[in-house]
Design a protein around this nucleic acid. Structure first.
Lengths: 204, 204
DNA sequence: CATCCTGGCTAACGAGTGTTAGCCGAACGT
DNA sequence: ACGTTCGGCTAACACTCGTTAGCCAGGATG
């Protein structure tokens, strides 16, 4: 289920301009930033002029909202699925870490924009998305805490450890190269292992 | 050696406008971003008008250059000192990790801007600073590699592990609260421990 | 006292940009 | 055939913002 529609080859398949525009915008937002991106540039990417975009989207700001809300909701959805799959604390922490990293590799543009452009969202969307993010982060913290109380994890601070895991995953979206030789799920598994080792529950 | 000059209390002590302006700019760049920050806002912070800034700085872009170059050079300086202090691989890795984290906590604005605004630097400054960053990162990777070859560290990839350590430190600059109860050096020590555990060299 | 320098100010320019208005050709339904 | 809708286009508006020009008060300097 690829989210990008590539070059129009001829004139078959319905263009789905809305998606096409959002994909172009996403790439530009990720590459040069929301404020630096102009409507004309987005139009260029799909071969139309800037003002023509308004036949398909309502504003630049709304495009950012759509991208960021979609990103955060999808991320939470996957995290919840990982948690609902059950297992012991360590299993669940490995799974949500893997989900976290895999998403940040597979959807590095969405993830990168999702973290970098929050302050360019106008209220009330900004607060709404920050709430989602807090919920997302809290699942890591609660799991680390649970593991520590069960003596599965050893850590001096649930908060710092969970932030460390979160941040090393977020970092992936900044350097991951999809044309490289490492697959997202491979990277995810490696990072999950790093995380549990960090929490003092390595397989030694 | 605090870099910020706070509220003018009266009219003593030379204002050192240049520093004052850079500090105001830094705070704004970190808070709302380089492109979103206007010269008028920077002026507001120190009680003068936007155009008056040009009596002390040459341009907005040059302020960004000064901030980012200063940050990266200072970071490298500290890292080199940590490496030159010697010790075995594990000692050195713990030390550069601690330096990394401590700087990102103590100078979270500089660090945050340093990573977020790179693409807003015009060439050739951008390339120059990216070179410094690559050098900085390579020291982590080389140390991880050295440790792995000596069987001190166990890791499936020097590159990924070192990126993980780097990114969890960078993340600190985004969430660290200087008015909180945790001191930068305390956090640094904790993260250094997390790092070596991650590399399979925990004290267990 | 006269002069100059420092560092503020306002006014204005010029470039860039999101968005709106209004036009028009092509495809399509009836 | 004909009207309507879709989705392009150009022109233009409204506004923001970095930067420059030019003025002036006040203190330092001779």
């Amino acid at each position: 289920m690829p989210s990008a529609v590539e070059h129009r080859t001829g004139s078959d398949a319905p263009p789905d301009r809305h998606r096409e525009i959002l994909d172009a915008a996403l790439e530009l937002f990720a590459t040069i930033g929301y404020r630096a991106t102009t409507m004309a540039q987005i139009g260029d990417r799909i071969g139309i002029r800037g003002p023509s975009l308004y036949k398909h989207v309502t504003s630049k700001q709304e495009m950012l909202v759509e991208i960021m809300a979609g990103m955060m909701e999808e991320l939470l959805r996957r995290q919840r699925a990982a948690l609902d799959a059950g297992g012991d604390v360590r299993d669940r922490l490995e799974r949500i870490t893997a989900v976290h990293v895999q998403y940040h590799a597979e959807h590095r543009y969405e993830a990168f924009v999702g973290h970098r452009e929050i302050d360019n969202l106008e209220e009330p969307e900004r607060s709404r998305i920050l709430d989602l993010r807090r919920e997302y982060e809290s699942h890591f913290r609660e799991l680390v805490q649970e593991g520590r109380e069960l003596d599965v994890f050893r850590t001096s601070s649930d908060r710092w450890s969970s932030y460390a895991i979160l941040d090393m995953g977020i970092g992936v979206s900044a350097w991951y190269n999809p044309t490289g030789s490492v697959a997202p799920d491979e990277l995810a598994a490696t990072y999950a292992e790093l995380a549990v080792r960090m929490l003092g529950a390595g397989d030694a």
